[in-house]
């Protein structure tokens, strides 16, 4: 069965165990989560989770129903038309500063720039769609990054 990439938003009661309840549904069925972000929703006692995963449509339908069934889950949104953004932080060693301008230019092309610099390293940031973040990381390989941290996707219905 064909596995399709899915982005699911889950609105949950912000309480202990809720992340374990949600991730447990995936774990118990042997499905991997590609990325997961959680943060509280301003002025509420709810949190917003964005989960990126892969699975056949029957499996995804079942997971979504099971998510609905969890007591602290308020809402599950799975939509084809989502605005998705992801952030990446990339650390580069500085060798005599020769690449700083090139790195800056690269990350500006991906809605970012240099966010921190010291004598030995600089850290650049990009915020864009996931596939563009992939490109950005590929392109930055020539500068020999020493560390890459992705945030995972956050998504919002159009």
């Amino acid at each position: 069965m064909q596995k399709v990439r899915r982005v699911i938003s889950v609105i949950v009661q912000n309480e202990a165990q809720v992340l374990a309840r949600v991730s447990g549904l995936f774990a118990g069925r042997g499905y991997n989560i590609d990325s997961l972000t959680v943060a509280t929703i301003p002025n509420s006692d709810m949190s917003h989770m964005t989960i990126v995963t892969r699975g056949s449509s029957r499996v995804m339908e079942q997971i979504i129903k099971q998510l609905h069934k969890l007591i602290p889950v308020y809402k599950v949104i799975e939509h084809d038309s989502m605005v998705e953004k992801e952030m990446v932080l990339v650390k580069f060693p500085i060798q005599k500063g020769e690449n700083i301008a090139a790195i800056q230019a690269l990350f500006e092309a991906y809605n970012g720039g240099i966010v921190n610099a010291s004598e030995e390293v600089l850290i650049a940031m990009a915020a864009d769609e996931s596939h563009r973040i992939n490109h950005c990381i590929d392109a930055s390989q020539v500068f020999s990054p020493s560390e890459i941290v992705r945030s995972g996707v956050v998504a919002m219905e159009r």
Partner: peptide, 16 residues
């Protein structure tokens, strides 16, 4: 207990 019983209860609570 809540960790172990999570997949075999409808819901569970740890009272804090």
């Amino acid at each position: 207990a809540v960790g172990i019983s999570r997949p075999c209860t409808k819901h569970n609570y740890l009272v804090k």
